[in-house]
Amino acid sequence: MSWLDANRDYVLDMLLQHVRLSVPAIVISVLVAVVLGRVAWRWPRAGTVVLGSASLLYSVPALPLLIVIPVLLGIPLRSGLTLVVALAVYGTALLAGTAADAFGSVDARVREAAEAMGYSRAGLLWKVDLPLAVPVLLSGIRVVTVSTVSLVTIGALVGIPSLGNLLTDGFQRDIRAEIVTGVLGTMLLAVTLDALLVALGRVVTPWRAATPAGGAS
């Protein structure tokens, strides 16, 4: 642990960079995927194309993507934005299908009754569909979160600093403690964000914790 003691500030700085890269990428993924998922759920025929293209994007290798994005968007290769965009592409690709499933998981009887009561189209989306889609959506967001936190490390290969630097630097200089710190730090961050999501899920879906009625009607 002496390496960690001596490099505490460096590790904390890299951890902070890691958070700064992963959290915006996750947030963008969720926003875009929910929109795509909604479209795919609403118009299933267009949805097949949308979801198909999304999963195709996921198969693009990471390194070429990191080169292509700066060229397409006119941003510097080593900018954190490059990595955020790349990770958002993967996150969206991973989540769009689940988001469509999440809307599909909403009980049709509930939606229909809400519509018949006089919810407007927007009201139906924000007050009925989205809250009820949360449980399935959240399971997808947890997968994207863990995957994104782990993928951030590849930014180190093109010079975008994160906990991944501990891996590249540790390998180059053969410092085992640094590699272990990089791996464990990344995992710890992923697990922490996941736990936060689970807690958030409990807060926004209080009805799921409620104990159901007994068998008698």
């Binding site: 009887r109 229909e112 809400a114 018949a116 009561m117 006089g118 407007s120 809250p131 009805w207």
Partner: peptide, 21 residues
């Protein structure tokens, strides 16, 4: 449409309550 529906009481089949409210 929306105003009309709000002015009419609607009793759905079983399972039509909003489960999250």
């Amino acid at each position: 449409k929306v105003a009309l529906r709000r002015s009419i009481g609607y009793v759905p089949q079983a399972g039509g309550l909003l489960p999250h409210r």
